[in-house]
């Protein structure tokens, strides 16, 4: 069955967490706004990753890591362009240029860098193909995702900070009582002006986000800035009341009566 969606709704950290916890094997493809990513996982471990906007063949990775000189790189491109990564890796190891460990370290580092870059993507359609074969000719690695997820989470600290500062998007905003500040004299961005135009104790932040077509992160960023500048205050929406505990149907009945009632329901539903 399909495992697909958008990073707007299901972040890359959540996605990697799912792949890790479910020990998934397959190919993850993400179409980002500027490039596409492909990552292969075996039993929940990273085996391969590449981005469409950068060369990801072994020779290019070695050159990027300064393990090859420009001349060596050109020579490989000229004479061994048709070799797969695995074949080129074997050739370089057998020729004594590198050890197997050195090749694997470069490849692993490149794959990990791809995943780290994905942590900056907040938008992009993803699809996980469970039965896809491992990309032909590529060198497989076996990188645990836990550390990557932790590192990715660190990069998302800004998001967490914003969530802590503005945990509830169902709160509303009102202008702070500061007669000394004239909004017209402030240097606000177009996005900030759009948000400001909707500020009203009747409008929740979520409603403002919807009206201005901003995602949760974008609206939190702007509201945080306005809050820090002392221009607005968070208020409970005029029409929102605190939930009060409700009573359940079984309250006040004896255990026997409760059991009898539920058993009657079960018997009837079974017979439907």
């Amino acid at each position: 069955m399909a495992l697909k969606g958008n990073l707007r709704d299901f972040s890359i950290t959540q996605l990697l967490n799912l792949i890790n916890l479910a020990h998934k094997t397959g190919l993850l493809r993400i179409r980002g706004p500027k490039s596409e990513a492909a990552a292969y996982f075996r039993q929940g471990k990273l085996a391969y990753a590449a981005l469409s906007d950068q060369p990801n063949d072994l020779a290019s990775l070695l050159y990027r890591e300064k393990k090859l000189t420009a001349g060596q790189y050109r020579a490989i491109r000229a004479h061994h362009q048709r070799l797969s990564d695995t074949a080129l890796g074997l050739l370089l190891v057998n020729a004594g240029y590198f050890t197997q460990g050195e090749i694997l370290a470069v490849v692993q580092s490149a794959y990990v860098d791809v995943i780290k870059r994905l942590f900056t993507w907040v938008d992009g359609h993803f699809e996980f193909h469970s039965n896809a074969p491992f990309p032909k000719g590529r060198i497989p690695t076996r990188v645990s995702l836990e550390n990557l997820i932790i590192e990715g989470s660190r990069q998302m600290r800004e998001w967490e900070l914003l969530q802590n500062e503005i945990p509830d998007l169902d709160m509303a905003l009102k202008f702070a009582d500061r007669p000394d500040v004239n909004l017209k004299h402030l240097n606000l961005s177009v996005e900030e002006w759009r948000v400001v135009s909707y500020i009203n104790p009747k409008n929740t932040i979520r409603q403002i986000a919807r009206a201005t077509k901003m995602n949760d992160l974008e609206i939190r960023r702007i509201v945080y800035g306005l809050l820090q500048a002392g221009l607005v205050e968070l208020v409970r929406p005029a029409n929102k009341s605190m939930p009060k505990p409700i009573h359940t149907a079984l309250e006040g009945k004896t255990k026997e009566d409760q059991r009898s009632l539920v058993n009657r329901l079960i018997a009837r539903i079974r017979g439907l």
Partner: peptide, 16 residues
């Protein structure tokens, strides 16, 4: 108010 229990229905095709 007064419910026995509740069912949360989720559309499996819409992760959003």
């Amino acid at each position: 108010e007064g419910m026995l229990g509740f069912i949360v229905l989720v559309d499996s095709t819409r992760p959003e």
